[in-house]
């Protein structure tokens, strides 16, 4: 179900916790699984639950509670824009509008070519850098201007 590399990464996470607390690694394990698979189909969640010896529904609770997990397929690149108040005051909404226009999609939509999904995010703890976007959950882009957005989209287009 998951690659050897992913399993090794999960094992490293498990080792952070007391031996009888493997479930603690579920957030990392789901994250690792999502990086490999692009999103979290139920089979993958069940696999992770089994791997950690926890009930499948408990893993599903986690996967559905934290909003960076994707329970539905997303485009190859997921772009999340923070539009919360501090960001909005410094152009967060404008940046989102620009992305919508460039990609021709609204929030929670994917471009027809399957390359981009746009999401509205909540506070990322980087309000001083507004506007900020998160690319594929793990890469934060600060002080976004239209030019920088163009540049990022161009880079991602080729990946």
């Amino acid at each position: 179900m998951l690659s050897q590399e992913s399993l090794q990464q999960i094992d490293r996470e498990i080792a952070k916790y007391p031996p009888d607390q493997k479930q603690s690694a579920v957030m990392s394990a789901l994250r690792i699984a999502q990086v490999e698979k692009g999103w979290l189909p139920k089979e993958v969640i069940e696999f992770v639950a089994d791997y950690l010896g926890m009930p499948a529904i408990a893993a599903y609770e986690v996967a559905s509670f934290y909003n960076m997990y994707d329970l539905e397929p997303v485009g190859r690149h997921k772009i999340t824009v923070c539009t919360n108040l501090p960001c909005a005051l410094s152009g967060g909404v404008h940046a989102a509008d620009y992305l919508k226009e460039k990609l021709g999609i609204d929030f929670n939509e994917t471009t027809p070519d399957g390359k981009f999904t746009l999401k509205e995010g909540e506070c990322m703890g980087a309000c001083g850098d507004a506007p900020v976007l998160l690319v594929n959950n793990h890469h934060m882009c600060s002080w976004m201007t239209k030019e920088k957005i163009d540049q990022i989209l161009a880079e991602l287009e080729d990946k």
Binding site: K42, P55, A56, I57, Y60, E61
Partner: peptide
């Protein structure tokens, strides 16, 4: 003795359910 139901999602969207299709 076996967690067959859970509360998935959060906030107002929280719902009680078994694991998908179980």
């Amino acid at each position: 003795g076996q967690m067959e139901l859970g509360q998935a999602f959060r906030g107002e969207h929280a719902e009680i359910m078994p694991f998908v299709e179980k």
